[in-house]
Simulated assay, not measured.
Amino acid sequence: MRTLLLVYCLLLGTAEAREVLIVGNNYGAPKIYAQNDQPSGLLVDILSYADASLPQHQLTLHLYPWARAYWMAREHQAGIVGLSWTAERQQIFDYSIPLFYDEVLVVVRRDRAFDFAGLDDLAGRRVGLGAGGSFGEDFEQARRRGAFEVIEDNGPVPRLKKLLAGRIDAALINPGLASLQWAIGQDLVLRKRAGELLALPQPLKRDANYLGFHKSMAMGEFLEAFNAVIQQGYDSGEIPRLLERSSRPVAQESAAPAGESVPL
Score class of each variant (00 low, 15 high):
115 D>Y: 00
200 L>E: 00
20 V>T: 03
83 L>E: 09
35 Q>G: 12
123 A>P: 02
149 E>V: 11
234 Y>F: 12
25 N>S: 13
62 H>A: 06
261 S>L: 03
10 L>C: 10
75 E>Q: 14
245 R>P: 05
94 D>R: 05
202 Q>E: 05
26 N>A: 05
260 E>N: 04
50 A>K: 08
126 R>V: 12
5 L>E: 15
263 P>W: 07
181 Q>M: 14
153 D>Q: 13
74 R>L: 15
13 G>R: 10
143 R>M: 10
134 S>H: 15
23 V>F: 06
19 E>P: 00
190 L>D: 01
186 Q>F: 07
41 G>D: 13
59 L>M: 14
163 L>Q: 08
83 L>T: 06
121 D>S: 07
147 A>V: 10
153 D>H: 15
150 V>L: 10
258 A>Q: 08
70 Y>L: 14
155 G>A: 06
87 A>G: 12
198 L>W: 01
224 E>G: 08
1 M>Y: 08
85 W>I: 09
183 A>W: 09
232 Q>R: 15
10 L>S: 15
84 S>K: 06
107 V>K: 06
21 L>I: 09
46 I>H: 00
222 F>D: 03
262 V>C: 04
158 P>N: 05
176 G>Y: 01
49 Y>M: 01
12 L>D: 12
75 E>V: 02
153 D>G: 13
25 N>P: 04
66 W>D: 09
121 D>H: 08
157 V>M: 12
188 L>Q: 13
213 F>K: 04
225 A>C: 07
17 A>F: 00
151 I>A: 06
107 V>W: 01
180 L>D: 13
206 R>M: 08
178 A>I: 10
227 N>H: 03
130 G>Y: 13
150 V>I: 09
64 Y>D: 04
101 Y>E: 15
202 Q>T: 02
7 V>R: 15
205 K>N: 01
219 M>D: 02
114 F>M: 11
141 Q>C: 08
228 A>W: 00
184 I>C: 10
120 D>P: 01
55 P>G: 03
39 P>C: 11
229 V>D: 11
230 I>W: 03
188 L>F: 12
257 P>Q: 12
188 L>D: 15
181 Q>C: 06
47 L>P: 00
231 Q>T: 06
142 A>Q: 10
180 L>A: 01
145 R>D: 12
19 E>Q: 07
228 A>E: 06
73 A>F: 01
254 S>L: 07
247 S>T: 11
53 S>E: 13
223 L>W: 00
122 L>S: 05
82 G>S: 11
100 F>D: 14
233 G>H: 03
107 V>A: 07
167 R>Y: 03
92 I>H: 06
59 L>P: 11
134 S>R: 15
88 E>D: 15
106 V>K: 02
28 G>K: 13
118 G>V: 07
119 L>Y: 00
50 A>Y: 02
27 Y>V: 15
87 A>I: 14
54 L>E: 07
107 V>T: 06
196 E>G: 11
82 G>I: 11
59 L>G: 07
85 W>F: 12
211 L>W: 01
10 L>G: 04
60 T>K: 14
196 E>S: 14
55 P>T: 09
181 Q>G: 08
33 Y>I: 07
198 L>A: 05
